[in-house]
Design a protein around this nucleic acid. Structure first.
Length: 838
RNA sequence: GGGGGAGUGGCGGAACUGGUAGACGCACAGGACUUAAAAUCCUGGGACGGUAACGUCGUGAGGGUUCGAGUCCCUCCUUCCCCA
């Protein structure tokens, strides 16, 4: 390899930067040396850095690349800082695409998935990511999913897994049920088909048992983005209020409703049941209104959830002809069925207080129901007949028996106690969060380890018989659950009585797989439990988790629940899985999210083919701060490529300087001292940008500035002067180290070229000297009446009086202050002198 | 309808605690090298006026606090995300 030399004034060309040669070379060496293997070591401080593992579709897109570029830069930085870093990768390998491929193309989902994983690993390796590949996992392997089954059984013992019949979300296109979290705006989160309601007997995880803890612990997650916490908080939706019982007239039925406004009970003038409410049929059976109500129920159920809860839509309802008693007043009022009430919230029954709830008000006006004011405003003039909208603010209670005259907010607790004494109702909490429905009528997932026996009922598969393996003798027809076509799977002897029995054919929601995988990485081959508690105790929790904001509720809430569940099984001490969370922004091109359907995808492997992995990584990190959207620009990539080329050339052209063994003395002229100062400042800035602000874009631009400075220095001073050679070589060496987390291959190549035998990642992150960071002179600005009018230089630490004097003495300043009265002078050392004149 | 982001040159973005707005990069223009091009290097650049030094305006719009506001407060507009 020819080395550039400057001989006789003729610059001989240095060997060109060739990522195509450099990158595979170093990837190979890293792997052979096992450089990124991590081993538990209690004497060292650990750091667990993790990216959300991908669904292996086979294609690595820019969103993935961004995710990994961030995580890898951070992991490499931390290694150089001396941490014992765990940085693994795995695959969220169960899911519908593999099964759909099986239906349409007759390929085995396992084969399809494994080959996709292979393709992804290949691209990830070419990116030069520093994963500990010995810890990799795929959730579709029995060695992994057997522990889903094991945890399911343990949860069952604890009462955290149970089976019940309930109206559930059914996606007609995916042919499966969905959890509440997986219904977005009334549609399936995956295919957007309108979700229907179906009554089915299904398995649930009792996430509601942790509702309060999940809510309260959000407070301790200081390093989570506020908006993710807000989203989770809203999702859990805890509200305080009361549950009130209403007797149905001419019946022994009691209907309970939850309300956050028990103070308005005296104003109840009707009640509404959801179309799905189990009592509806019973109430109208045999009555003359039965037909009309049934028709209405059917119509309501055909509407989507969005339609039904749209507040701008006119509410529709139908009178059941039945009445109930308002316990506060003893009066009888009608019971309606209406489309705006759904079973999802509270109890599926709502008490109607038209005067103080806008929806109730509109409904009451439409159907001519009485409006009764029980909270009066400041004017005291509200009346049911004249008001044009509900009064929802606070006020003074009226028409409320013994509570008349009291401010409603303040009286609320007393009112609830009063209700409890009278036996009308009780204090209650309500959550929006529902238990997690985990059954899926699909093949490519973890079989639920349950056997149904006509004698013994639901029998858990004994722990010793795990895993229940997914059978391969199934038919993919596109209709029904393929598992039902496997006779070998279906028929089994009851573990209890040995009689003939049938296996559960539903599989688990794939979000279960991703709910505990960070634990599995700590010991992916462990075969006595999901993970070795000792190893998990060392590594968990994840110190830095990185992924898309789209998982703010789903995955992140489930994983938090699982961690608490595993803790209560005694497997871990961790309360939370992720200490710090970074939500990366989307990758945008031509104004739209980069996606296959938009046709604006830039494939990762193509990028690396053209520019190499280092360029791609540098550009992705440089173009935008991680949390924000990233606007893709092909020209921008050229810029990053040019930058790396420049670094390469600069080092290769100056290799001779590195032979100089003498350290940096700090001797030399002002230019030398300035170069040294920039070098130390850059080290400080890059470190702070990565560590404290997680802002790689400004870190990289600081390195660019250092490189510009070195180049300018060489062009101006050359390297012959006193201290010049050592200052330049030190600055270049520093550049290589600072660049290492972002462009690891190039850094290794140059590190070797300048004469180091060991990997750059075994080196300490460069340090800086606080004294050298400080400038010899600082620029001061002089403002007159808020406008910058002059500048001067002063050494740091100059006293205020002296700065003020200098400023006032400047000709330009004198010109502007002449004949005027100086009203005020503000001096900020190191920044400015601000003079106010009149 | 509720909650939360974001809005800065032609573009991506910087400005960390209220203190020189536009770092760094892209695109662009001029120049050097070259027979020519590519690559590379140098120079320029928010807008308007001026040969200039300088002046005026300028961070979505309008108001306010302050010696000083991209940054803080109020009202509004646009846009994205989440929940309805």
């Amino acid at each position: 390899m020819p080395i550039a030399t400057q001989a006789g004034g003729v610059l001989m060309s240095a060997s060109r930067y060739s990522p195509r040669d450099i990158e595979p070379k170093w990837q190979d060496r890293w792997e052979k040396a096992g450089l990124y293997r991590s081993v538990e070591d209690p004497s060292r401080e650990k750091f667990y850095c993790l990216e959300m593992f991908p669904y292996p579709s086979g294609d690595l897109h820019m969103g993935h690349m961004r995710n990994y570029a961030i995580g890898d830069a951070y992991a490499r930085f931390l290694r150089m800082k001396g941490f014992n870093v765990l940085y693994p990768m795995g695959y969220d390998a169960f899911g519908l695409p593999a099964e759909n491929a099986a239906i349409t193309r007759k390929v085995d989902p396992g084969k399809w998935t494994r080959s996709s994983i292979k393709r992804m690993v290949d691209v990830q390796k070419r990116m030069g990511l520093s994963y500990d590949w010995s810890r990799t996992l795929a959730t579709c392997e029995p060695e992994y999913y057997r522990w889903n089954q094991w945890i399911f059984l343990k949860f069952m013992e604890k009462g955290l897994a149970y089976r019940k019949s309930a109206p559930v979300n059914w996606c007609p296109s995916c042919q499966t049920v969905l959890a509440n979290e997986q219904v977005e705006g009334g549609g399936c989160w995956r295919c957007h088909s309108t979700v229907q309601k179906k009554d089915l007997k299904q398995w649930f995880f009792k996430i509601t048992a942790y509702a309060d803890e999940l809510l309260e612990d959000l407070e301790h997650l200081e390093d989570w983005p506020e908006r993710v916490k807000t989203m989770q908080k809203n999702w859990i939706g805890r509200s305080e209020g009361a549950e009130i019982d209403f007797k149905v007239v001419d019946s022994d039925q009691v209907i309970s409703t939850f309300t956050t406004r028990p103070d308005t009970v005296f104003g109840i003038t009707y009640m509404v049941l959801a179309a799905e409410h189990p009592l509806v049929e019973e109430l109208v059976k045999g009555s003359k209104s039965a037909d009309g109500v049934r028709k209405f129920v059917k119509k309501a159920q055909e509407k989507t959830l969005i339609e039904r809860t749209d507040e701008t839509r006119e509410k529709e309802g139908v009178d059941t002809g039945r009445t109930f008693v308002n316990p506060a007043t003893g009066e009888k009022f009608p019971i309606y069925v209406a489309d705006y009430v759904v079973m999802e919230y509270g109890t599926g029954a709502v008490m109607g207080v038209p005067a103080h709830d806008q929806r109730d008000f509109e409904f009451a006006r439409k159907y001519g129901l009485p409006v009764r004011v029980v909270i009066q405003d400041d004017t005291g003039l509200l009346t049911g007949n004249t008001m044009t909208q509900a009064y929802v603010e606070n006020g003074v209670m009226v028409n409320s028996g013994p509570f008349d005259g009291r401010p409603n907010r303040e009286a609320m607790p007393d009112f609830v106690s009063y209700m409890e004494e009278k036996g009308w109702g009780r204090e209650a909490l309500s959550y929006r969060l529902r238990d997690w429905l985990i059954s899926r009528q699909r093949y490519w997932g973890t079989p639920i380890p349950i056997i149904y026996c006509s004698q013994c009922g639901e029998v858990p598969v004994p722990e010793g018989d795990l895993p229940v393996i997914l059978p391969s003798d199934v038919e993919f027809t596109g209709e029904g659950n393929p598992l039902e076509t496997s006779e070998t799977f279906l028929n089994v002897a009851c573990p209890n009585c040995s009689g003939p029995a049938r296996r559960e054919t539903d599989t688990m929601d794939t979000f279960i797989d991703s709910s505990w995988y960070p634990f599995r990485y700590t010991d992916p081959a462990y075969d006595k439990a999901p993970f070795d508690p000792a190893k998990a105790a060392y590594w968990m929790p994840v110190d830095q988790y990185i992924g898309g904001i789209e998982h703010a509720i789903l995955h992140l809430l489930y994983a938090r629940f699982f961690t608490k569940g595993l803790r209560d099984l005694g497997l871990t001490d961790a309360n939370e899985p992720f200490k710090r969370l970074l939500t990366q922004g989307m990758v945008i091109k031509d104004g739209a999210k980069m996606s296959k359907s938009m046709g604006n995808v830039v494939p990762a492997d193509e990028m690396m083919e053209r520019y190499g992995a280092d360029t791609a990584r540098v550009f992705i990190l440089f173009a935008s701060p991680p949390e924000r959207e990233l606007e893709w620009s092909d020209q921008g990539v050229d810029g990053s490529y040019r930058f790396l080329n420049r670094v390469h050339r600069l080092v290769m052209e100056n290799l001779s300087l590195f032979a100089d063994v003498a350290g940096v003395t700090g001797q030399g002229d002002e230019n030398v001292r300035s170069l040294i100062r920039v070098r130390h400042r850059t080290v400080q800035k890059v470190r702070e940008d990565i560590e404290r602000r997680f802002q790689f874009n400004t870190a990289i631009s600081a390195i660019m500035e250092l490189v510009n400075e070195i180049q300018r220095f060489i062009a101006g001073n050359g390297t012959k002067g006193e201290g010049a050679a050592s200052a330049v070589s030190d600055a270049l060496r520093t550049t290589i180290l600072l660049l290492a987390p972002f462009a690891p291959h190039l850094a290794e190549e140059l590190w070797e070229a300048v004469g180091h035998g060991e990997s750059v990642f075994k080196c300490q992150w460069p340090s800086y000297d606080q004294e050298l960071v400080v400038s010899e002179m600082v620029q001061m600005v002089v403002q007159v009446n808020g406008k910058v009018r002059a500048r001067f230089e002063a050494p740091p630490g100059t006293p205020k009086e002296s700065l003020e004097k200098t400023a006032l003495g400047m000709p330009r300043v004198q010109e502007l202050t002449e004949g005027k009265e100086v009203v005020k002078i503000v001096v900020i050392p190191g920044r400015l002198v601000s003079i106010v004149v009149k």
